[in-house]
Amino acid sequence: MSSPFGKGLAFPPRVDASGRMLWSQGERNIQESIAVILRTDLNERVQLPAFGTSLNAFLFEPNNAATHARVAHAIDAALKKWEPRITVEAVDVAADAKATETAVATITYRLVATGAAQRVAIDVPLATS
């Protein structure tokens, strides 16, 4: 029986001891897909220019509530468009207490195939407030 989550090349791409490409599958494949979507800038992919989120575009934006809302919206829209295996429930963005030039985006989602709740966080570099 095949997995409802899919299978793809591991991200980042790597090889095993025998020199073969590693694959990821299951929930790990979805987590890697989310990372690819969030770390890809718009227009970065030649044949798919609308893919990604362009979180790097926020690099010089202030680390405040208005920027956090825009980052959350960009993440939510990109994941809803590019990752059909999940249902995004919430995207919370807040300043990192330890690094004033970083915001932390916490994404809460459910796997469509099983309904299992998952959470992933990503650092978003911003300017200091």
Rank of each mutant, 00 (worst) to 15 (best):
K7Q: 13
W23L: 15
D92L: 04
R119P: 07
P12H: 09
I30R: 01
F5E: 08
P62V: 03
A57D: 14
A57N: 13
G19M: 10
V104L: 10
E44I: 06
A74T: 06
V112T: 02
A65V: 12
Q25E: 15
T87W: 00
Q25S: 11
G19W: 09
V124S: 08
A121D: 12
H68V: 07
I30W: 07
A116I: 09
L42I: 10
V15R: 14
D76V: 07
T87C: 11
D96K: 09
I86P: 06
S24A: 12
I86V: 11
A78E: 01
W82T: 04
I75N: 07
P125Q: 03
I86R: 00
G52E: 00
S129M: 13
Q47S: 14
D123Q: 14
F11M: 01
M21D: 05
I86S: 03
S3L: 06
A90D: 01
G26K: 13
S2V: 12
A57Q: 10
L79R: 08
A127K: 08
R14P: 00
T67N: 08
L42H: 10
V71T: 01
Q25N: 12
K81W: 11
L38A: 00
H73Q: 15
E83P: 07
L9Q: 14
D16A: 12
A105F: 03
A35D: 14
V104E: 04
G52L: 03
F60A: 10
F60L: 15
V91G: 04
P4S: 14
S129W: 15
A105K: 00
Q31T: 11
K80Y: 06
P62R: 02
A90M: 04
Q47M: 15
E32L: 02
V104C: 03
T100Y: 13
A113M: 09
R20T: 11
N56K: 04
V91Q: 01
L48D: 15
P49D: 11
N63Y: 05
D96Q: 09
R70I: 07
V71A: 06
N56M: 05
V88A: 05
T102H: 09
S129P: 15
L22Q: 12
K80M: 02
A105P: 02
Y109M: 04
A65H: 08
N56Y: 08
R20I: 01
V104K: 09
T106V: 05
L55V: 06
L22R: 10
Q31G: 10
S33L: 08
S3K: 05
D92H: 00
T114G: 03
D123M: 11
D76Y: 07
E83W: 00
A105Y: 00
I37G: 08
L48I: 12
L48R: 04
S18H: 11
V112N: 00
I107K: 02
A117K: 12
F51K: 15
R85M: 07
